[in-house]
Design a binder for these strands. Structure first.
Ligand SMILES: [Mn+2]
Ligand SMILES: [Mn+2]
Ligand SMILES: [Zn+2]
Ligand SMILES: [Zn+2]
Lengths: 142, 142
DNA sequence: ATATTTATTGCAAATCATTTGCAGTAATAC
DNA sequence: GTATTACTGCAAATGATTTGCAATAAATAT
């Protein structure tokens, strides 16, 4: 644990968002103006390995990784497709589902990620339902 | 629907894996040697928009997108951290969970992704349990 | 405390998957 | 047929992430 690593982890913990490496760097660099973006990346990957941070790739369009401090309990995410707001939630019911799955398939589950995509309360009103025109292509397929 | 698009979609449907764009191109190019990788990308993005394909980013380490034909029913994935094998499964129980969540948070869920990471039967035996040494850092954090 | 070894950093350059501009083709409309 | 439009191949651009390396800091040994 070096000064930089401590700073990066502290900055991440201080946030209640899921920052990108750049966002995190922008914040941490205020405390240590010489802190480099590659150090942020390296540290985040290290923290990930150590199980203290997890990388989230739930941005719908191709984009940057986001980082999530792995505070004790696992949690899951709802993401508004429109405004990109995130709701975090626990899912106690998942335990049983996982166990069933483990028994059924004879595997060991180490972690689980549940992501819901949709429209948040605010966006739900503004946006009408979305149409898909090529649905009929489905008929061509087995 | 052009010749290329049809070929790409057919190649994807024919596979039972979740190929990367490159893998898919490698296969489709056998039928049409002039097929270009950017056409594969463009087509996959188009299919995604049309709701016929979904992009999966469940490769653990930073890597390529993988593509999954969206045949009628939603399904979910178990991924072996060791051999990267994938088990697909349905999760009927999720419907209720989603509804509960929608009511509780007043949102509309449009899609859901559940991913389990772990060790498959085969890998389970070979690999011992994994240690994390920096767990004690947790105590430093709120 | 000083010298020695080891790990981490900053910086710049490299990497790699994905996207984009554009001129040429194929498809479709008139 | 010609005009209009959409799609493709190719090459170059993009953008996030990673890496090599020399400099710096931390840890360990003397
Ligand atoms: Mn989170
Ligand atoms: Mn699948
Ligand atoms: Zn919203
Ligand atoms: Zn396995």
């Amino acid at each position: 644990m070096t000064t930089q690593r401590r700073l990066i982890l502290a900055s991440l913990d201080a946030l209640d968002t899921h920052p990108t490496a750049e966002e995190l760097h922008a914040i941490a660099v205020q405390q240590d103006p010489s802190l480099n973006l590659s150090t942020v990346y390296r540290t985040l990957r290290w923290l990930e390995q150590e199980g203290l941070v997890s990388t989230r790739r739930f941005d719908e369009p191709r984009r940057q990784d986001r980082f999530d401090p792995m505070l004790p309990s696992q949690h899951h995410h709802f993401i508004c497709k429109s405004c990109k707001n995130v709701i975090e939630f626990d899912l106690p019911a998942l335990g049983d589902i996982q166990q069933d799955f483990e028994h059924l398939h004879q595997v060991r589950i180490e972690s689980a990620s549940v992501v819901f995509y949709g429209l948040c309360t605010a966006c739900n009103r503004q946006n009408g339902p979305v149409e898909s025109e090529a649905e009929r292509e489905l008929s061509q397929r087995t």
